[in-house]
Design a protein around this nucleic acid. Structure first.
Lengths: 215, 215
DNA sequence: CCAGCGTGGTACGTTGCGTTACCATAACCT
DNA sequence: AGGTTATGGTAACGCAACGTACCACGCTGG
């Protein structure tokens, strides 16, 4: 009667084992890509038998989709959970940008980013899920913030969606690309701060010396 | 004695055959990725014998690097060759952005982008070459333009490099990401123009209603 | 203490792929 | 025209990898 309660006790709990497998597999998948990663390589890292993986995830595809979904969700949790409650627009954007660059520069999300992009044709559902929960959701939320400010007359823009995309793009610029390509180590705290401040300043004020024509 | 003059004539010129192989292989590599692409699949597209590929490129790696290098160079040629000679800063930036978005949205460069990112660990030299000749070179050139404007007092910014990165990031934002992920068809001419104008306007003027404090 | 089952490790069947080799054929040069 | 040479097609050779099977071991539970 003890087995009826879901899962019987094991040497390592099923959840622990699953978590270990996911971590090890994520490392290999994110480094080598989907096709170049072998199940043997994963087992070599995590130990145990291949039977474990196949019992838990069914196939290589199942393992891969589980990894990407889980990693994406865990990395993006910070953004969706917390509310953006700055006092004024500049502070709100700064806070927003700080969270965003923190997430985009995290090794885990960089792995998700690379592998999702690489396998977008093979796993279109995964690509859509990643975009919708990540960059898409972010941009939508930001667009709402901008819309509010627009209603209050603080800013004057046309299409909030496009402008929100632009702002997130500034945080995912060449620096991010260099990190993703492995040409540069992840940013230090100071560097992140500098990028955030610079992006916010340009986004709000532009770069022209002369103020905008009041017209 | 006729062979001494480099290459003897063939049914298809060596250059033509090489070009055909490169095109077919690029299509498959850019869709499937490096590891998932088989030489048989390439041969199936281009016809002929595998011997042709191995005589010309030596190996799968050789073919891949040749493809990426060639595709990147051909896609980026438009940007490096022509000079950016707008009359004022706004026109210069607009022209710059138009060329840039045209290149970044081209199917060929999207393929290079995806595959370079995916295989950055396996082919770090390729990643560096792509970045240096593409986004890196672009940002450097733009930074020079900004530096000139800064010297003339037209703009006030701190680090031209970072600001240039920001601008290029605005052109490679979520819209670009959606296209790369296959979630959206390539942009129409009108959409591109809208994005370019929006990015330039924000970059120069910011989004605040009030003009910057003259101080 | 003993039965039962999940687990670790290894080995296997099959498939696909990179690379090379072999032959028939069609084009080029003298 | 005839020989040479490159090309097309097929096949073969290792090798690696997905997924499965087998077997010994140690933990669960009475």
């Amino acid at each position: 009667m003890n087995k009826d309660a879901g899962r019987p006790a094991k040497r390592l709990s099923s959840h622990e084992r699953r978590s270990l497998i996911l971590d090890a597999a994520a490392t290999v998948f994110f480094e080598q890509g989907y096709s170049a990663t072998s199940m043997d390589a994963i087992i070599e890292r995590v130990g145990g038998s291949k039977r474990n993986i196949y019992n838990e995830f069914g196939s290589k595809e199942g393992l891969f989709t589980a990894i990407v979904s889980e990693a994406a969700e865990s990395a993006l949790r910070a953004l969706t959970a917390e509310e953006i409650g700055g006092r004024n627009l500049r502070e709100t954007l700064t806070e927003f940008a700080q969270k965003l660059i923190e997430i985009y520069m995290s090794p885990k999300l960089i792995g998700v980013y690379r592998v999702t992009m690489a396998e977008a044709f093979r796993f279109p559902d995964l690509a859509k899920a990643f975009y919708d929960r990540g960059p898409g959701r972010t941009a939508l939320r930001l667009a709402e913030v901008l819309e509010d400010a627009k209603q209050r007359g603080e800013i004057e823009i046309d299409d909030c969606r496009i402008v929100a995309d632009h702002f997130t793009g500034m945080l995912r610029d060449n620096i991010h690309l260099r990190v993703v390509l492995g040409l540069q180590p992840p940013l230090t705290v100071d560097e992140k701060k500098k990028v955030v401040d610079s992006a916010v300043a340009i986004f709000l004020d532009g770069i022209l010396t002369q103020p905008k024509r009041p017209q």
